[in-house]
Deep mutational scan, measured.
Amino acid sequence: NKFNKEMRNAYWEILHLPNLNEEQKNAFIQSLYDDPSQSANLLAEAKKLNDAQA
């Protein structure tokens, strides 16, 4: 299933973003579980936030 793979990839990438705190990571990961079809968008948002907090 495409979403499972996308979701897993997004999950791991978000988990390893160095500039997000636990609360931010948890919020993105919760959103992933709530709507796996948004994995790519959530990952993009997480990366933007990560870069902004660098």
Results as ranks from 00 to 15, higher is better:
residue 49 L to D: 13
residue 35 D to T: 05
residue 49 L to R: 09
residue 13 E to N: 14
residue 4 N to E: 15
residue 2 K to Y: 05
residue 26 N to K: 13
residue 29 I to R: 06
residue 26 N to Q: 09
residue 38 Q to E: 07
residue 8 R to I: 14
residue 15 L to M: 04
residue 44 A to V: 06
residue 2 K to T: 01
residue 54 A to T: 02
residue 33 Y to I: 06
residue 38 Q to V: 08
residue 50 N to P: 03
residue 42 L to M: 08
residue 16 H to V: 03
residue 35 D to W: 07
residue 20 L to F: 04
residue 16 H to E: 02
residue 28 F to H: 07
residue 22 E to T: 13
residue 53 Q to T: 09
residue 37 S to N: 06
residue 51 D to E: 14
residue 24 Q to G: 05
residue 25 K to P: 00
residue 18 P to D: 11
residue 34 D to T: 13
residue 43 L to M: 05
residue 21 N to L: 11
residue 34 D to I: 14
residue 2 K to M: 09
residue 21 N to I: 11
residue 9 N to D: 08
residue 12 W to Y: 07
residue 52 A to M: 10
residue 46 A to N: 00
residue 47 K to G: 04
residue 8 R to N: 12
residue 45 E to Q: 12
residue 33 Y to S: 02
residue 48 K to T: 06
residue 20 L to M: 08
residue 29 I to F: 11
residue 21 N to F: 12
residue 15 L to R: 05
residue 37 S to Q: 08
residue 49 L to A: 09
residue 38 Q to H: 04
residue 33 Y to D: 01
residue 30 Q to A: 13
residue 39 S to R: 06
residue 32 L to R: 01
residue 29 I to E: 04
residue 40 A to Q: 10
residue 49 L to G: 11
residue 39 S to I: 15
residue 13 E to I: 08
residue 1 N to P: 15
residue 51 D to M: 11
residue 21 N to G: 08
residue 15 L to A: 04
residue 39 S to P: 15
residue 23 E to I: 11
residue 42 L to D: 06
residue 12 W to H: 09
residue 43 L to N: 04
residue 53 Q to M: 09
residue 51 D to N: 10
residue 7 M to N: 01
residue 27 A to S: 13
residue 4 N to R: 01
residue 24 Q to V: 06
residue 39 S to M: 13
residue 46 A to Q: 00
residue 1 N to G: 14
residue 26 N to S: 12
residue 24 Q to K: 07
residue 49 L to I: 05
residue 8 R to M: 15
residue 48 K to H: 13
residue 34 D to G: 13
residue 1 N to M: 01
residue 18 P to K: 04
residue 46 A to I: 05
residue 33 Y to P: 01
residue 10 A to G: 00
residue 53 Q to P: 09
residue 6 E to F: 01
residue 33 Y to G: 02
residue 12 W to P: 01
residue 53 Q to H: 08
residue 49 L to H: 05
residue 23 E to T: 06
residue 16 H to A: 07
residue 36 P to F: 04
residue 12 W to I: 04
residue 1 N to T: 02
residue 2 K to V: 10
residue 2 K to W: 15
residue 37 S to V: 04
residue 19 N to Y: 12
residue 15 L to V: 12
residue 37 S to F: 10
